[in-house]
Amino acid sequence: MFRQTLSSTRVLARSFRPQLIQRTAFLSLRGYATRKYTPEHEWVSVDANGVGTVGITEYAAKALGDVVFVEIPEVGTPVLQKEQLSAVESVKAASDVYAPLSGEVIEVNQELESEPSLINSSPFEKGWIAKIKLTKKEELDGLLDEAAYAEHIKE
């Protein structure tokens, strides 16, 4: 269903807007609908089954520079909110990634092992790090929405 909403937005946008603007509008629309953020630049997008997909934001990826290594968590690992989930390294900078929500890691993005640069090229899509089966959905309310995060990185 999610996919359908996406593509219909895209089709709509394509018919009305020039190429460049269309893409930006499409991305932010979807962001408003699903994505939440931490002040430490992680994002999480939660589906109807209570599974949160986690990654780091475009802002963080840009600040880090070319990612050369991603420490991928292990499936089955229980994580608590604000506990370390993963770590990335970019041009001599090691940066810890924290779990935005508590739960259990049920899937990881193995692609990052051979292609860590996906974090830079596609931070919100192909550069996702892990999927967490949430155990405390109420924690989601404490995260930033798109507008609040945008405000946060402007500071």
């Binding site: 002040p39 430490e40 880090l64 001599k92 900078a93 090691a94 940066s95 810890d96 924290y98």
Partner: peptide
């Protein structure tokens, strides 16, 4: 030689 570490804030 230099290296960096970023954690939270």
């Amino acid at each position: 030689g230099s290296a960096y570490k970023l954690v939270n804030a």
